[in-house]
C-alpha cells in the first residue's frame, strides 16, 4: 500500500475553477459515494450494536463452533460466544482506535510538517531529517516491540502509539506543500498585515491544503485500522477487549482454521479490508478533487 497523493500534482487552488461546495463536489464522484457508503455502513453497525444483536459479545453461553443459523446469524466461536455480537461490538473498538490513531498521526503530521517548512533554516533541516528517519524505520516491527513492552494495555494507548509511529509520510507531504505556499503573495500579505505566525500557519496556509490533510487523514485511518488489527491479532493489545483484531487472535488460538470455522475469521478480516477500501476510495476522491487531470480519467 502506497499513498496515492502525489505532492507536486496537488496544487490546491480552488479559486480558479469557480468552485461549487467542495463537499458537494466530493460526493459527485462515484468513488467517494461508494467509499463513504462503506464507511457509514460500518459506523452505523457500530452505533446500533445493541439493536442488531441481543447478545453480550463476551458471554460464553452457547454451544461452541456452531455454523451460522437462524439464532446465530454468524455462528458461534470456539468459546461459545455469538460471532455477530462480537463482530458488531468489535466494530466499535476497531473503528474508534483506527480513527483515533489516524487523527493522532494527522495532528502530529501537521505540526511536524508545517512548522519546519514555515520556519526554515536549521530547524527545518533537523526536523525534516528526523521525519525522513521515522519514515524509513519500519513501523510494524517498531510497533511490535513497543507492544511487547507495554503488554496488555488499553485501546487508547494503542491508538496513540500507532499514531505516533505513523505520522511521517503526512509530515513530509505537508512540508513540501507548505514550502510551496509559504512564498505565495497572500501569505506575504498576511505577514505585512502583522499577523502572528500561528495565524499564518493555521488560518492562511492550512485551509489551502485541506484536501491534502483530508486525504492524509483517510490514509492514516486506513493505516490505523490495519495496525490495530495486526497488534491485536498477535495478542499484543488487550486480548480481553472485543475488536476485529482480537476476534482473529482468538480464532487462531481456538484453531478456527483446523475446525473449518470460516464464519469466525472471515467476517472481521473482510470488514477490515472493506473499511480500508472505503477510506482508500475516499482518499482517491479527495485527491481527484484537487487534481482535475485524474478526474477526467475516472
Amino acid at each position: 500500500m502506497t499513498v496515492i497523493t502525489s505532492v507536486a500534482s496537488t496544487s490546491v487552488d480552488p479559486s480558479r475553477r469557480g468552485r461549487t461546495s467542495p463537499i458537494r463536489q466530493f460526493f459527485k464522484d462515484p468513488k467517494a459515494r461508494v467509499g463513504f457508503g462503506i464507511f457509514a455502513f460500518f459506523v452505523l453497525i457500530a452505533l446500533l450494536a445493541p439493536v442488531i444483536t441481543p447478545y453480550n459479545p463476551q458471554s460464553t453461553l452457547f454451544i461452541p463452533l456452531q455454523a451460522p443459523d437462524a439464532r446465530h446469524w454468524l455462528g458461534t466461536t470456539g468459546n461459545g460466544q455469538d460471532v455477530l455480537a462480537q463482530f458488531v461490538y468489535g466494530a466499535r473498538t476497531s473503528l474508534t482506535v483506527g480513527i483515533l490513531a489516524g487523527l493522532t498521526a494527522t495532528a502530529i503530521g501537521i505540526v511536524m510538517g508545517m512548522l519546519p517548512a514555515y520556519r526554515g533554516g536549521t530547524f527545518d533541516l533537523v526536523v525534516s531529517t528526523f521525519t525522513n528517519i521515522i519514515l524509513v524505520v519500519p513501523g510494524l516491527p517498531l510497533l511490535l516491540v513497543i507492544g511487547a513492552y507495554i503488554h496488555q494495555t488499553g485501546s487508547l494507548v494503542i491508538a496513540l502509539v500507532i499514531g505516533m509511529t505513523g505520522w511521517a509520510w503526512q509530515a513530509r507531504v505537508l512540508r513540501s506543500q507548505t514550502l510551496s505556499l509559504v512564498s505565495r503573495d497572500y501569505v506575504v500579505a498576511a505577514r505585512l498585515a502583522g499577523a502572528p505566525d500561528q495565524h499564518i500557519i493555521f488560518r492562511e496556509i492550512l485551509p489551502n491544503m485541506l484536501s491534502l490533510v483530508v486525504a492524509g487523514l483517510m490514509y492514516s485511518c486506513l493505516y490505523g485500522i490495519l495496525a490495530e488489527a495486526s497488534l491485536e491479532f498477535l495478542g499484543l493489545g488487550n486480548i480481553n477487549a472485543t475488536s476485529w483484531g482480537t476476534m482473529l487472535y482468538w480464532a487462531t488460538q481456538g484453531a478456527a482454521l483446523l475446525n473449518g470455522a470460516w464464519w469466525w475469521f472471515v467476517p472481521p478480516g473482510l470488514s477490515i479490508a472493506l473499511v480500508g477500501m472505503g477510506f482508500s476510495l475516499m482518499n482517491f476522491a479527495v485527491d481527484t478533487l484537487s487534481n482535475p487531470r485524474l478526474r477526467e480519467s475516472s
Binding site: 500500500m1 479490508a273 482517491f284
Partner: peptide, 11 residues
Amino acid sequence: TFTAAIPFFWL
C-alpha cells in the same frame, strides 16, 4: 483499493 486494504495476516 480492496486488495491493498486486506490485512496480510488475514489473507
